[in-house]
Simulated assay, not measured.
Amino acid sequence: MRFLPLLIAGAALAAPAAALAHPHIFAEARLEVVAGEDGTIEELRNVWRFDEMFSASVVMDFDKNSNAELDPDELAEVGKTVLDSLEEFSYYTTITEDGRTVKVRKPDVINVDYKDGQLLMFFAVKPDEVMPLKGKLTFGVYDPTMYASMDFPSDGDLVTVGDKFAACKSAVVRPDPDEVLSENQSSLTDAFFNDPTGTDMSKLFATRLEVTC
């Protein structure tokens, strides 16, 4: 089954439900949470580096002139496809403010590059509302369908940027799967693991940056 024409998001909807129990696409991620001079969250800067197998499949699908490379226009087409297909998934970006989910705006563009056999994506998203540096804020990147694994190799890949964060405390949280299962046993049912549309419960397993101001 070919998933690449739909690039990640559509893949989760097209795949058999049983196949979604574990990820099929792997990416290393970096997230920079930027505060503006006005003391609010300005934007979240994302960098994603995908595994070689997925990257090679993208080349196969978008290399229109068959030169075994992705030319600038082909890279732009990949970015446009992802820009459209991941909108309903909030670009895998999750933000909460004192436990309340904050939506993100559609980015202007998703920049794409292909280096050393791996596909890279660079883009920034903004909160859909004003977010002052106040209370408990969380930021993360995860695929709610669990089809793609978004991994932060080190805690230094989740960072805050801006002088206004000086008055806040931040910490990277990497949930222990066994603890999550134990603490949420009544909620995590077979339907959760086999739901091809994804559920919000998967964020319990996701690495996140917690900021308290």
Rank of each mutant, 00 (worst) to 15 (best):
G99R: 08
N111L: 13
V104H: 02
V112T: 09
T93L: 03
V141N: 06
V104E: 00
D108M: 13
V112L: 09
P144F: 00
T96N: 10
V109N: 13
R100V: 14
G135N: 07
F139P: 03
P107W: 00
K106Y: 05
V104A: 04
E129H: 14
D128P: 15
P144G: 08
G117H: 06
M121D: 02
Q118P: 14
I110K: 05
V104L: 06
L119M: 08
V125A: 02
F123D: 01
R100N: 10
V125C: 01
G99W: 02
D128Q: 15
M131S: 12
K115S: 12
D98S: 13
G117F: 07
I110S: 01
K103I: 06
N111Y: 10
R100K: 14
V141T: 12
F123R: 05
K134Y: 11
D113L: 12
Y91Q: 07
T93K: 07
I110T: 03
V130D: 04
Y92A: 07
L120I: 10
L133R: 03
Q118V: 13
D108G: 15
E97M: 12
F122P: 11
T138H: 03
V141S: 06
P127E: 03
I95R: 05
D143W: 02
F123Q: 06
T94F: 01
E129F: 07
R105C: 04
M131L: 15
T93C: 06
F139R: 08
E129P: 15
A124G: 08
P144C: 07
G140V: 02
L120S: 08
T96R: 13
G99T: 07
D143N: 14
D98G: 14
T93Y: 01
D128R: 15
L137M: 10
T93D: 01
G135V: 07
V102L: 10
P107D: 00
P127I: 08
G99A: 03
R100I: 12
T94K: 09
T101L: 10
T101F: 06
E129G: 14
E129Q: 15
P144S: 09
D116V: 15
G140P: 10
D116A: 13
V141H: 04
T101V: 12
Y142R: 05
L119Y: 04
K103T: 12
Y91H: 11
K136M: 04
P132Q: 07
G99F: 02
R105W: 00
G140S: 05
P132D: 06
K134A: 10
P107A: 09
A124I: 09
G99K: 11
L119T: 03
E129C: 14
K126P: 08
P107L: 01
T94G: 11
D143P: 15
K103C: 11
V109F: 12
I95E: 00
V130G: 11
R105Q: 06
D116H: 15
D128G: 15
P127M: 09
G117T: 11
Y142G: 02
D113C: 12
V130A: 11
P127W: 02
Y91G: 04
I110F: 00
M121C: 07
Y91C: 09
L119I: 12
V141E: 00
M131T: 08
K115W: 04
E129T: 13
K106A: 07
I95G: 01
D128W: 08
T94E: 01
K136T: 11
M121F: 11
T138F: 00
I95K: 03
M131R: 14
D98R: 13
G117W: 03
R100Y: 03
K106W: 03
F123Y: 06
T96Q: 10
M121K: 09
V104K: 02
